[in-house]
């Protein structure tokens, strides 16, 4: 911590009545964000009025109303576009996008991928509960194959998409994942996202206890975390399990690259995968993104954090260099461009 905190958690709580269902995972995320904000402000020398939350539609998107910052609850799927317009014209603001699996990956999928590819300096929190909550329980693009819901009584016939894979394919420069209820994990990825220059994308596993209760229990439940999750640490071996007995190794040969769970004791340390979040090569984070229970632990933490030029900075740079090369625009001259004549 570089500075004394100017704010406390209370400064980030609005007086609007929170309307999520009791027990909803959204409460944890709200609490984590409110808790980490004073730290982010102190760390980045930010004023609270310079932080803006922009959301789309869905349970998650009510979020801005509960933060005591500037907030804009927009329309379904479009939050990244509004955040882009805001950030590009007001680069001094720190802009957060709050979205969900339906909002961000279904109706707003196009905007999400383009926001990521452009590397707009906004922070995207995607609350993934693998269900449509606000519309009362239809399957979402992240619902597991065959899921039975109100709109799929016989089970879905659609394969789910993986938000981390989508982010990697979209050339995102910061990609992370956390469990809503894990304070330390959430704090860590939120801080890192805030500091990242460029689009930061965080998938948060969030339990919808009304329409999809227990969706993540197989690994996110306290008793399962040790065996079924792995915390990614840059430059460190990818190990998990009680006392770090297990590890991920990469087996390759005959045109295939396969991750494998190994016992640390049984293998040479050089065989264990070392996590490199800074690698420009997307293959490793992609491979990690594919790890799923029950065969593999679910990776959490930062998958990727690379440095690339930011859209808004480059646009500002174009303005600056155009003014240097052509001189600051002269309206009177510009109106007379081309041939003019007097009557």
């Amino acid at each position: 911590m570089s500075a004394v905190a100017e704010y406390t958690r209370k400064d980030f709580s609005s007086d609007q009545e929170v309307r999520w269902c009791p027990g909803c995972g959204d409460y944890s995320i709200l609490a984590q964000v409110q808790r980490v904000m004073p730290e982010i402000c102190a760390d980045m020398n930010l004023k609270k009025e310079n932080i803006v939350f922009v959301s789309g539609i869905g349970c998650s998107s009510r979020f801005p109303y509960y933060m005591n910052n500037y907030g804009f609850h927009t329309i379904h799927g479009r939050a990244p576009t509004i955040a882009t317009g805001l950030k590009v014209t007001r680069p001094e603001l720190q802009v957060w996008v709050i979205t969900g699996d339906g909002d961000g990956l279904s109706i707003g999928g196009n905007h999400l991928i383009h926001c990521l590819r452009r590397n707009i300096d906004v922070k995207i929190l995607l609350f993934n509960n693998r269900i449509y909550g606000l519309t009362k329980g239809q399957y979402s693009p992240t619902s597991e194959f065959g899921k039975k819901t109100k709109s799929s009584p016989l089970g879905t016939v659609e394969r789910p998409m993986n938000p981390i894979s989508v982010a990697i394919a979209s050339e995102a420069t910061f990609i992370a994942r956390a469990i809503a209820t894990e304070g330390a994990q959430m704090r860590d990825v939120l801080m890192r996202a805030a500091r990242h220059k460029g689009t930061a994308f965080i998938e948060v596993f969030q339990n919808c206890n009304v329409f999809n209760d227990g969706a993540f229990d197989s690994f996110a439940d306290k008793k399962n975390q040790l065996e079924f999750t792995v915390s990614l640490q840059h430059g460190k071996p990818v190990i998990f399990g009680k006392d770090g007995q297990k590890a991920i190794a990469i087996r390759s040969g005959h045109g295939s690259i396969e991750p494998q769970v190994v016992n640390v004791a049984d293998v040479d340390p050089s065989e264990i995968l070392i996590h490199d979040e800074a690698s420009p090569n997307p293959a490793l984070p992609y491979l990690l993104a594919q790890l799923e229970t029950p065969e593999f632990p679910v990776p959490l933490g930062v998958f990727r954090a690379i440095s690339r030029p930011v859209y808004g900075d480059m646009l500002d740079e174009q303005v600056k260099s155009a003014q240097q090369n052509q001189g600051k625009g002269d309206l009177k001259k510009h109106l007379r461009a081309g041939e003019t004549w007097k009557v």
């Binding site: 922009v54 804009f72 927009t74 479009r78 990244p80 576009t81 509004i82 955040a83 882009t84 317009g85 805001l86 950030k87 590009v88 014209t89 007001r90 603001l93 196009n110 905007h111 383009h114 646009l315 174009q318 303005v319 155009a322 003014q323 090369n325 052509q326 001189g327 600051k328 625009g329 309206l331 510009h334």
Partner: peptide, 30 residues
């Protein structure tokens, strides 16, 4: 062509994004 006037333009990914960006700019006072 008018960057030297400080004009920012963005070719959006679709029509909806284009107006979204415009709304974002307006929200920010531009």
């Amino acid at each position: 062509k008018l960057r030297h006037f400080g004009i920012k333009t963005a070719q959006a990914e679709d029509e909806i994004s284009a107006i979204g960006m415009a709304i974002g700019a307006a929200y920010g006072g531009c």
